[in-house]
Design a protein around this nucleic acid. Structure first.
Lengths: 204, 204
DNA sequence: GTCTATACTTCGATAGAC
DNA sequence: GTCTATCGAAGTATAGAC
């Protein structure tokens, strides 16, 4: 019941016009790179190649633009994750595929990043997609891990909910370590370390 | 060799005067709460109860103040972690103590947070303490995990470096999940899930 | 050491012409 | 729909008096 139903809908009405569309995309990029506080309307306009008037015609203001951007980013993340977690393979294979999927590690997670922005977290409208997306991801992973336990791939000692939180935390924290180190290496180490714990080399 | 040598030195010269000291503390708090971009000199002055002139007398500017604040925060984190990791108990007990230590989960990690601030990461002076602290933490944890493997507490399949990255990532990512959820619960779940994987209930 | 005054820029938004 | 003009506030500092 947690699963997809993610038909590739056309983007929301907001992006009906080309200018609005470019504004949303520019905002998505800037929120990812600089966060909400670090992103000014002017910077968005410049990256989008749109003028002041155009921006305020299509959007009520900075937070309205951010809402459109965050909503779309959250939907994308969810669709991508669900594609792998609901794909072919055993439970452990699917979790592994998700953990090992190609990532622009040094850029970090465009959703998790927003978590560090007090202005985003203080606004219920902006915060909702962040909370929901990460909540959904934990839930979906818990389902897959529960499958793995039921099928005997994973030992009964594996608690699906807890382990799901561990898995997502390793990803989110892996990004932090990678950025601190200026290298994707710690991210890969963290993932490898987790997988070694999850499916150890056939103990007696 | 990674271990302490952390004598409780008096704070750096910077904080010799009471005003400078209050400015550094105010900056530490604000960096934690709002990040570098979100922290203005004026806000620092107000929280410190110091005037414009006072601040610019003691510090060259915003980034100089931030350097003093970040340096101190990094030193504190390291001292606290080392206290637990070099304390009494078996290797797994010490790692567990570190993972379970009391934390203000919703506030997150004052060092890991800076990782999301492009202005901090772009400045080598500000970035260095972040990189070093998290690097040191991974190294120190790897040492403790290696002890645990040598003593038979942990299976030979546990790679110290990788697992150390996993442990730190779970903490950093746990903060992210907690902030997203608005509750410490996912953090605790992630830690519990990790510990269950690290020391499973006596398999055959 | 600390204060006040001043300066210049950017932020986030509105107004009204086209 | 988009442009330019304008606005009041805040950001980040410098200058010089006390």
């Amino acid at each position: 019941m947690y699963s997809a139903a993610v038909t590739t809908n056309p983007p929301p009405d907001r992006a009906a016009s080309p200018a609005a569309e470019r504004l949303v995309e520019a905002t998505r990029e800037l929120l990812w790179e600089r966060g909400y506080t670090g992103t000014s309307p002017k910077a968005v306009q410049q990256r989008a190649g749109a003028g002041q008037g155009s921006m305020y015609h299509h959007f009520a203001g900075k937070s309205d633009l951010a809402l459109a951007a965050i909503t779309r980013t959250a939907e994308e993340l969810r669709a991508r994750a669900d594609g792998l977690l609901s794909g072919p393979g055993t439970a452990v294979e699917r979790v592994t595929a998700y953990l090992r999927r190609e990532r622009d590690v040094l850029r970090g997670c465009p959703v998790g990043r927003l978590t560090q922005d007090p202005e985003v977290m203080a606004d219920p409208l902006l915060r909702a997609p962040v909370e929901q997306t990460l909540g959904w991801l934990r839930g979906r992973l818990a389902e897959v891990l529960a499958e793995g336990r039921a099928s005997g791939e994973l030992p009964p000692s594996v608690d699906p909910s807890g382990t799901a939180a561990t898995v997502v935390a390793v990803l989110q924290g892996g990004y932090v370590l990678a950025r601190a180190a200026g290298s994707p290496e710690p991210f890969d180490q963290a993932v490898t370390g987790l997988l070694a714990l999850l499916s150890p080399p056939r103990p007696a």
